[in-house]
C-alpha cells in the first residue's frame, strides 16, 4: 500500500512511456527495422560518430584533468583548499547547462574576456585562427568545464581511501614518488579511473542543453537530432526518433554497466588485500 504511489509514478512517468518508445521503434503496422536502417544512414550515422567522439575526448580529458587535480589536492593535504574546491566542483559539475553555455559564448565571443586578453597581451587574434566554439573541438572545451570538476568530485574519495602505509612501503622499497604513482597508485586506482571515465562519457553522451545552446545546428549530435525530430524542424519521423533514442539508451546502459563493473573490481581488490596493509 505504502509503495503504491511510488510505483504508479515510476510506471506512468518512466517505464511505460519508455517501453512505448522501444516498441514504436520497431513497429509500424507490423514488425520493421526500417527506422534502425534509417538511423544508420549518412546524416544520423555521422551524428552517432560525432557524439561518440565528443563524449570520448571530453571524458578522457576530464578524467586526466580531474585525476591530476584531485591528486594535487590530496597530496597538498590542505583541508580548507580541498573543502573549498569540492564545494566549487559541486556547483560546477551540477550547473552545466545554459548559464555555462552563455558564459563561454560571451567569454570567447567577439568582445569577450579571453578574446580581448589574447589580443591585448599576445597580439593574437582568436577569430582569425578559425577557432569556433560551435564545433566539436569547441564543444569538448566547454564540456571540460563540467567534466573536470565532476571527475575531481568522484576521484577525491578514491584518493583519500588510499592507505599511507602503501606509500611508505613503496618508498622504503626504493621507489621514488613518480615510480610510486606509476607502479602502485595508478594500478591500485585503475577501477576508480575506469568508473569515472564511464560516468563522464555517459554525461557527455547525453548532454543536450549545452550543445543546443552553443552549437545548435552546426554540430551534428544524437541528442540534438532527437530534439529536432520532436520540435518538427525536420519532417516529423517519430519512428526514426525512437530508433535514435533506443540507440542512445543502449550506449548509456553499456557505460553504466562499465561503471557497475568498476565498482565490482574495486570491491574484489579490497577483499583480496583485506587484512594486509593495503587499504584500497
Amino acid at each position: 500500500m505504502i509503495y503504491g504511489p511510488l510505483f504508479l509514478f515510476i510506471s506512468l512517468f518512466a517505464l511505460i512511456p519508455v517501453a512505448n518508445v522501444i516498441a514504436n521503434s520497431m513497429w509500424a503496422r507490423g514488425l520493421t527495422f526500417n527506422f534502425y536502417g534509417q538511423s544508420f544512414s549518412s546524416q544520423y550515422l555521422n551524428a552517432f560518430i560525432t557524439t561518440l567522439k565528443v563524449a570520448f575526448w571530453s571524458g578522457l580529458i576530464g578524467l586526466i584533468g580531474g585525476a591530476v587535480v584531485a591528486l594535487s589536492l590530496w597530496r597538498s593535504k590542505s583541508t580548507w583548499v580541498t573543502t573549498v574546491i569540492s564545494a566549487m566542483s559541486g556547483v560546477l559539475a551540477n550547473f552545466a547547462g545554459l548559464p555555462l553555455a552563455v558564459a563561454f559564448m560571451v567569454t570567447f565571443g567577439v568582445s569577450g574576456l579571453v578574446t580581448n586578453a589574447l589580443q591585448k597581451f599576445f597580439h593574437f587574434n582568436l577569430s582569425q585562427t578559425g577557432f569556433n566554439l560551435s564545433s566539436s573541438v569547441g564543444l569538448i572545451l566547454v564540456y571540460c568545464a563540467f567534466q573536470i570538476p565532476l571527475a575531481v568530485l568522484v576521484l577525491l574519495p578514491a584518493y583519500s581511501s588510499l592507505s599511507e602505509d602503501l606509500e611508505a612501503a613503496a618508498l622504503s622499497l626504493g621507489c621514488n614518488v613518480l615510480e610510486y604513482f606509476r607502479r602502485v597508485l595508478i594500478p591500485v586506482l585503475a577501477p576508480s579511473f575506469l568508473g569515472t571515465f564511464s560516468l563522464l562519457f555517459a554525461n557527455a553522451f547525453s548532454a543536450y542543453v549545452t550543445a543546443y545552446a552553443i552549437a545548435g545546428g552546426s554540430v551534428n549530435l544524437i541528442p540534438i537530432q532527437i530534439g529536432y525530430l520532436i520540435n518538427g524542424n525536420v519532417s516529423l519521423n517519430v519512428g526514426l526518433g525512437n530508433a535514435l533514442a533506443v540507440e542512445e539508451m543502449v550506449v548509456l546502459s553499456l557505460s553504466l554497466s562499465l561503471f557497475v563493473l568498476s565498482l565490482r573490481m574495486r570491491k574484489k581488490r579490497r577483499q583480496r588485500v583485506k587484512g594486509g596493509a593495503i587499504n584500497v
Binding site: P17, V18, P223, I226, I230, A245, M249, L252, L256
Partner: peptide, 14 residues
Amino acid sequence: FVVPAVVLALAYVQ
C-alpha cells in the same frame, strides 16, 4: 541515468 532528458521528452510527447 539511462534515459536522458531528451529521450524522456520524446517518450512523453508520444
